[in-house]
């Protein structure tokens, strides 16, 4: 029985899986996810698809905001760029999905980099405001460029195919999202382990010191924006496939705030934070949905009350976490794990 985790070499500290125990349970979890569609209802599968998409988006936002410290309130807009790029490429240009998906990511990354350029001069509040501007400008383009995006009415998304997979079939879409979510997690983990990730963290913690020790601020800030928006673009493309009809209303500032809230609840600057935050958010949402439908049928006169309960509960949750658990669920998870590892002989 270990009394702690001791690293004697640098390589062991840098490993993706710290212990064999973690590795085993991770594979059990992944196998569970892979077998999930065989036992779950259609509703649960579609929820899990949504969760997978949100995980990809949150990893992107977490890399940018949690690791590089660049606050972004325009993440949903970059998802929108990806969603529309992928859908337009498929339906208008007839590009196969294999190419359209990375193209969606690349387009989002490009737009993200354009709006990331001010980050060279702006920090903190000012950057947050710049990303709000990005959100509104992109939303405006989506809403008003009728010829390309269908304007206010939105556009139908042609279901894509990839080899034997047809994504109008929820289970096929689930598997695609699942694989991509795992890939995104692995990619994020490896970015964090590598030089670029350490540069991100250095910029977040003290950007002047980072510059002094030879981190190219402009390069790494832009890179962070690019990676983050790339993941957002991929998530957006999947979202388009999931929703089947996309309008500008799927990518408003409210969604941007939601993603940021998920990252904060999960824990900014922890890879697990993205996953925990998304899980917490969706569980809370389902519980509230159940609560409101039950209450609605019991008290049909007060429907607007129960609509507003959702808003209030989410708001209070965000405030609660910021005041009482600012490091998020990931930090809480870490303390719980540390406690049980040494139980009952903790000091």
């Amino acid at each position: 029985m270990p009394s702690g985790l001791f690293h004697e070499k640098y390589e062991t500290d840098e490993r993706v899986f710290q212990t064999a125990f973690v590795k085993v349970w991770l594979f059990v979890f992944l196998a569970g996810c892979a077998l999930f569609p065989f036992v779950a209802s259609k509703y649960m599968i579609s929820i899990m698809t949504e969760v997978g998409i949100a995980v990809i988006a949150c990893h992107g936002l977490n890399l940018l905001t949690g690791f590089t410290g660049q606050i972004s309130l325009g993440h949903a807009a970059f998802m929108g760029v990806g969603a529309y790029t992928c859908s337009i490429l498929i339906s208008t240009a007839g590009v196969p999905f294999v190419l359209a998906l990375p193209a969606a990511g690349a387009m989002a990354a490009l737009v993200g980099m354009v709006f990331g350029i001010p980050s060279l001069r702006l920090r903190g509040l000012y950057l947050a405001i710049a990303t709000i501007a990005a959100q509104f400008i992109i939303e405006f383009v989506i809403r008003r460029w009728d010829g390309l995006t269908g304007g206010v009415e939105g556009m139908y998304v042609d279901p894509a195919t990839l080899g034997p997979l047809h994504f109008n079939h929820p289970i096929h879409l689930y598997y695609l999202t699942f694989v991509l979510a795992v890939a995104a997690t692995l990619a994020a983990k490896n970015i964090i382990r590598a030089r670029s990730g350490r540069a991100f963290v250095a910029i977040r913690d003290r950007y002047l010191a980072a510059e002094v020790i030879g981190v190219n601020l402009f390069k790494y800030r832009l890179m962070s924006f690019a990676v983050s928006s790339f993941l957002a673009g991929i998530a957006g493309a999947l979202m388009a496939q999931y929703l089947e009809v996309i309008t500008h209303e799927s990518f408003t500032i409210h969604q941007s705030i939601d993603y940021l809230a998920m990252c904060i609840i999960g824990g900014l600057g922890h890879l697990l934070g993205g996953i925990f935050g998304v899980a917490f958010w969706f569980i809370l949402e389902r519980m509230l949905e159940w609560l409101t439908t039950t209450l609605n049928s019991a008290f049909p006169d007060h429907i607007t009350w129960f609509v507003s309960i959702r808003e209030i509960v989410f708001g209070v949750t965000i405030i609660w976490f910021l005041i009482f658990e600012p490091d998020g669920l990931a930090a809480r998870w870490r303390t719980i794990r540390a406690y049980w590892k040494l139980w009952p002989f903790s000091y």
Binding site: L125, I257, L260, I264, I309, G315, V316, I318, L322, I323
Partner: peptide, 28 residues
């Protein structure tokens, strides 16, 4: 007041959380 001295992101986010709560009350 509990957030005085916290990082900018917390402070921005708490006001955003406030938007949810206030909007919820208004709708209610």
């Amino acid at each position: 007041r509990p957030l005085i001295g916290e990082p900018i992101i917390s402070v921005i986010m708490v006001t955003l959380g406030l938007t949810y709560v206030l909007r919820g009350f208004v709708i209610m």
